[in-house]
Nucleic acid binder design. Structure first.
Lengths: 202, 202
DNA sequence: ACCATTTCGTAACGCTGTTAAACAATTTAA
DNA sequence: TTAAATTGTTTAACAGCGTTACGAAATGGT
């Protein structure tokens, strides 16, 4: 009867091996080149065995996502526990989020999807249309209280804007049901906040 | 010799047909189910012909991205031209960006990649770890000057935070080279700005 | 009318995720 | 101990993907 336990332990082990191998492959070669046959190779089995541990490939990714959220959740909690003031807590929590993203880049990509083509730099090879960054550049410069601001600073300010707007758009595209007037309100408020912060700082 | 022109016109037409069909399929079935064979079906050809007009599938997507940027660029420019004050210009430009995203949802997804799994709502089925939203909820509530704030408002505030942080993380993951101290500075500034805006408003 | 070139479809390659069936090993029952 | 049943694992295959090689058919120029 104890052999049941041993077998269960072996099963758990290969299940963990599948997850570990998947993450390792993603770290080494990127998520897009992760295949069932590669995982099978890594755990020294053939592909069909994986389906005794996971329903399909997506289930593996979902389990890894779950792992990621567990780590992230713990990190955020310990950050929160170090302060009493809500404002301080909030800052610490987001800094923990920030640190998690860089300590677990592949997990973060899996959880939140970092794309290649957004905003700064990556769209230089679009000759016909000026890139949004270029269009925003001069306007942002004229808001900064400095004669010659660093290019990276402008890019970063632009990206701050873009992040907020893009985030609000995303939530609306994939989760309809927010009242449009409230969205407009929030959007305008966020924009004017950032404008103020640009004018204030530097 | 005029037949050369006619042929060229036909070629341009099928090239445009390929792009139109691709976008239409994406609108109807989503980008992930867009295949070369489906495009070929739509333009009433077989798959290999497409390769006489585009080097590969990615080239089609890139061309559509270019299209998207041209439209977006024009929209932003006309919004900008309606004002003189930089702050007003900036607001109008981002509102134009916003409108573009909803008027061309599929193009926007292609250009900036809207993921399925971020933040609010979509991660409910992760029982073991509290979702980040839940962890942030009470802290955000305690910052709002209201006894009983609307749940959607909290979610939206959370998403505003998340957008900024996620945006800054993205730019750092895929484009290294920004000085870490500046990033930290910008991150903390953005966070405290949002905190202030939360405390101020409502 | 003939040749050259372009246009297009068929078939195939190597890859993907996934499943069915067959074989081997192990555990259980008589 | 031997037979039966269950489990573990592999091989083979399917359907789909992006992409390419090749041959046939249609076209244009001389």
């Amino acid at each position: 009867m104890a052999s049941k336990d041993r077998i269960q332990r072996l099963k758990d082990e290969t299940r963990a091996n599948i997850l570990d191998a998947s993450l390792r492959i993603a770290v080494e070669e990127g998520w897009q080149s992760l295949s069932m046959r590669k995982i099978a190779d890594a755990i020294e089995y053939t592909a069909p065995v994986i389906y005794e541990y996971f329903a399909n490939k997506e289930a593996i990714l979902l389990e890894l996502t779950r792992r990621g959220y567990m780590i992230l959740s713990k990190d955020i909690q310990t950050a929160k526990n170090q302060y009493q003031l809500p404002a301080k807590q909030l800052e610490a929590m987001w800094l923990a989020y920030w640190d998690f993203a860089f300590a677990n880049q592949e997990l973060y990509q899996l959880m939140f999807g970092v794309q290649i083509n957004c905003c700064c730099g990556v769209v230089e090879d679009l000759p016909e249309s000026k890139s949004p960054l270029n269009q925003f550049r001069e306007v942002i410069i004229s808001l900064i209280n400095s004669a010659d601001p660093a290019p990276d600073l402008i890019c970063l300010k632009y990206y701050t804007f873009w992040s907020v707007v893009h985030g609000l758009i995303s939530i609306n595209i994939l989760k309809r049901g927010y009242s449009p007037e409230m969205n407009n309100q929030v959007l305008k408020a966020a924009i004017s906040d950032i404008i103020n912060s640009i004018a204030k700082a530097t």
